[in-house]
């Protein structure tokens, strides 16, 4: 099976994720889209590791997963506390930090 298909899939997933980040207002969905982009990148890394025949890409993919897990913890905590104080999970409502 050609590795190209994996790369196509990865590009599609990344595009869906990026579009989601830009167009959705719900913080949870935006968050999920960020995870989608991360995993699309992971897929690319693993694919190229396979193509090149070494393990570097796979190792980086593990690192990304670890960082993503940590990020999920912090991110969800922030979203929770924003929701508690504002009764809303919309990213557009939290816009006080500006000019």
């Amino acid at each position: 099976m050609s590795p190209d298909y994996y790369l196509y899939l990865s590009a599609i997933l990344f595009t869906i994720g990026a579009t989601g980040v830009l167009v959705r207002r719900n913080a949870i969905v935006v968050f999920m889209c960020v995870e989608l982009m991360l995993n699309a990148v992971n897929l690319t890394l693993v694919t190229f590791a396979r193509v090149n025949g070494n393990l570097d890409g796979q190792i980086i993919a593990f690192f990304v997963m670890v960082v993503a897990a940590a990020e999920v913890v912090v991110g969800l905590a922030i979203i929770m506390s924003i929701f508690r104080s504002r009764r809303s999970a919309s990213v557009d409502d939290a816009n006080l930090l500006k000019y």
């Binding site: 990026a18 980040v21 830009l22 167009v23 990213v91 557009d92 939290a94 816009n95 930090l97 000019y99």
Partner: peptide, 17 residues
């Protein structure tokens, strides 16, 4: 230029993209 700091996270994401 200051006006570009809108406070909307999604616009920052767009400029990053």
């Amino acid at each position: 230029i200051r006006r570009t700091q809108t406070g909307f996270a999604r616009s920052y994401a767009l400029s990053m993209l």
